[in-house]
Nucleic acid binder design. Sequence first.
DNA 1: GGTGCATAGTGTCAGGAGCACCTTAAGGAA
DNA 2: TTCCTTAAGGTGCTCCTGACACTATGCACC
Lengths: 230, 230
Amino acid sequence: MTDTTQQRLSLAVSTVVFALRPHLRTGRLTVWLPLVRRIREPYDGLWALPGGPLEDDQDLAASARATLARTTGLAPRYLEQLYAFGDVDRSPGARVVSIVYWTLVRPDEDAQAIDGENVEWFPADDVCGLAFDHDVIVRYALDRLRAKITYSPIAHAFLTDEFTLAQLREVYEAVLGRRLDPANFRRQILAQGTVEPTGRHLTGTSHRPPALYRSNLARPRATLTIEETA
Amino acid sequence: MTDTTQQRLSLAVSTVVFALRPHLRTGRLTVWLPLVRRIREPYDGLWALPGGPLEDDQDLAASARATLARTTGLAPRYLEQLYAFGDVDRSPGARVVSIVYWTLVRPDEDAQAIDGENVEWFPADDVCGLAFDHDVIVRYALDRLRAKITYSPIAHAFLTDEFTLAQLREVYEAVLGRRLDPANFRRQILAQGTVEPTGRHLTGTSHRPPALYRSNLARPRATLTIEETA
DNA sequence: GGTGCATAGTGTCAGGAGCACCTTAAGGAA
DNA sequence: TTCCTTAAGGTGCTCCTGACACTATGCACC
């Protein structure tokens, strides 16, 4: 940190974007992510994570947001640093250190997404053959998502302000890839106090109207996350 | 990541080093860390984390190890990436992104530590007034240590190959800052299967000789850590 | 309007994990 | 031999979790 000699390496910021969309065959919610087709060497034509070089006057998280807005039109609220990847040989012909963020996209945010010419969404579990070491990065982000959802209320970040417990459960089921008992799920969520009822109910269903809840920020969980200012 | 235009920013790698040493007053084990006195602007004369610029031909972890060896003489086995700090204004007069590692030092490794002229060890909880944003970094590393010790067997990294359960418990008590029930601690540790008895016993104590254990790597825990090659 | 159906929400119970506390084991020191 | 200290194991209580039965409440259909 003391010496600031000019270095021959460059610093990039990339982001793994997760959104929940129905699976093409089964129709059940699954984790999807957008990728960008590379239009130059190295790895010309392959898919890669959205990202770009860090600008001098930008904080790390701001850089991630700027790239996301430019490539996918997304402006997600939840954004967290994932890891810094910096092996010497990870980018042919250049030394690039990538600081990777990951983000969760709500349905209303997802609706704003614009698929550019070279942007396409893929089911996260099927992704492979990406440029650079991005296969490893995506897998790492998925592991982090699945681990963190078990001890932190990040599932809310996949939902709009008001949601039913069934919707929240669907998020957990989509991320974890297995069904959960509705009764026990309800008890667990209510016990941890991360949601509170709004008093309103969802209508228009062909069955008993479920109660609506909102995320309860009054009792923030003690996470290790360093908050990224939006 | 695509564009690799030459940037006016530099990349540094720093490390938060944790070792357990007796507290000066109480004599109980506490978390200590080494700091380096800055000998140039900015923050000339203040204490800072050991670190240095990233070399072109060095992986991130290798850079952390090299700086550690140079400044403190330490060659710890456990090394893990902590976070990348890159706010625009964190270093006066220059744009420096620091990728920070954290490491745990065993007593036998700690014995190799050489306190250079401008290196001094401090109790981790008392540290403040450091250069740059290093106060924040140290606090973040401490939080991570205390969180991770509760769900991952990293406590072993503070001990030599053979240890008693009482020694392992002392590590937990030092890190968490509170006493633990010996009987329940024993059951929990043995239940999770991260240690195995060596069959040998510690002798020379003025009481019943405790059994010696070793870390059981045969059943590695599913952690999210990306292994850093030594 | 009655009946069936789907989902919301509650109750119950067995098994397991964690915790506080008690008992026994085994060595050293006097 | 006796006493002291810590290791190591046992006991019972409580809470959590998972499995599953049961009740509640809307809509669709006849």
